[in-house]
Design a protein around this nucleic acid. Structure first.
Length: 273
DNA sequence: AACCTAGCCAACCGCATGCTC
DNA sequence: TGAGCATGCGGTTGGCTAGGT
């Protein structure tokens, strides 16, 4: 019975690559009538495909506004950042890349970016090992007092661990267009899973509460001239790491003002997401 | 020229979820 | 409440192509 059913399905529906004629039929139908119910679309459009196949073809290939071709550096960075935050949530990642499909991003990840990430991890491991070895050498020749100092942690394995840990738990920062705090403090994104901000000013201090549904909630207390608070500090850390990643001098990182919390990398800028 | 291999990418498949009755 | 169906998502497959031997 099951075999018969499968055979019938096979006989009914084409499989494999879409022909230009099929594309044309699907495009024309959806442009004129909308897709409506995907399951009934193939019959109405005169296609020997199943609804799933039509949907996939439309979403991944025929839909207007799709961006074809190679990914830009900024798109790559966005994918890497979001993948670090979201994991294999390709559809969610795709929401941040207009014109790109989840399938395209997924393929790009598996064919290219995954390798790049491995390289970065290897780089971190090497750095960690080097740091450890350097530190061991220093320890051998230095006095015990330096070991007893809790503040003297520069170059230590603990620092290397913290660096790796910090990188894997980075705040949700994306590199995008210039935005001042005033621009995004009340910004709400279309996707409910994204960030919203609330601002509270008490005297000379301004508190920004940014909430990440189901995940982090970071509060930043920003007072004029202060660089040391929570996510604000983390933003700078992230920016420094970003410069490292791109072999850029961290001095390129330019703090503009407390009122316009923007960073200039020479090629990218920062915003919270 | 023939074969092999690796990479890319479109498409398929199975599962999860949401909706309707 | 649960069955049935439609849709969406992520993992996987398989065909095509370019480059190497």
């Amino acid at each position: 019975m099951r075999c018969k059913s499968l055979e019938t399905t096979k006989a009914k529906h084409n499989k494999g690559l879409w022909s230009p004629e099929e594309d044309e039929k699907l495009r024309n139908y959806i442009m004129n009538h909308g897709h409506g119910s995907w399951s009934s679309l193939p019959i109405n459009a005169g296609l020997k495909r199943n609804g799933k196949s039509c949907r996939l073809r439309w979403i991944n290939y025929l839909r207007p506004g799709l961006k074809r071709g190679t990914f830009t550096i900024q798109e790559e960075e966005t994918i890497l950042t979001l993948h670090g935050m979201l994991g294999n949530k390709w559809s969610q990642i795709a929401q941040h890349l207009p014109g790109r499909t989840d399938n395209e991003i997924k393929n790009y990840w598996h064919s290219y970016l995954k390798k790049r990430t491995v390289e970065i991890v290897n780089f971190e491991d090497k750095k960690r090992t080097d740091t450890f070895l350097n530190n061991s050498t220093c320890e051998a020749v230095s006095s015990a007092s330096s070991l007893n100092s809790s503040e003297n942690t520069e170059g230590s394995l603990q620092d290397a661990d913290q660096l790796v840990a910090r990188r894997s738990n980075l705040p949700k920062v994306l590199f995008a267009d210039w935005l001042s705090l005033d621009q995004f403090q009340y910004q709400e994104f279309s996707n409910s899973s994204q960030l919203t901000y609330a601002k509270e000013t008490t005297g000379s201090n301004t508190t920004y509460q940014n909430s990440f549904p189901n995940e982090h909630s970071v509060q930043s207390n920003i007072s004029p001239g202060s660089l040391s608070n929570d996510s604000y500090g983390n933003m700078i850390s992230q920016a420094e790491l970003k410069c490292e990643d791109q072999n850029m001098d961290t001095e390129l990182l330019e703090f503009i003002s407390e009122d316009n919390m923007c960073f200039d990398f020479g090629m990218n800028n920062l915003m919270f997401i």
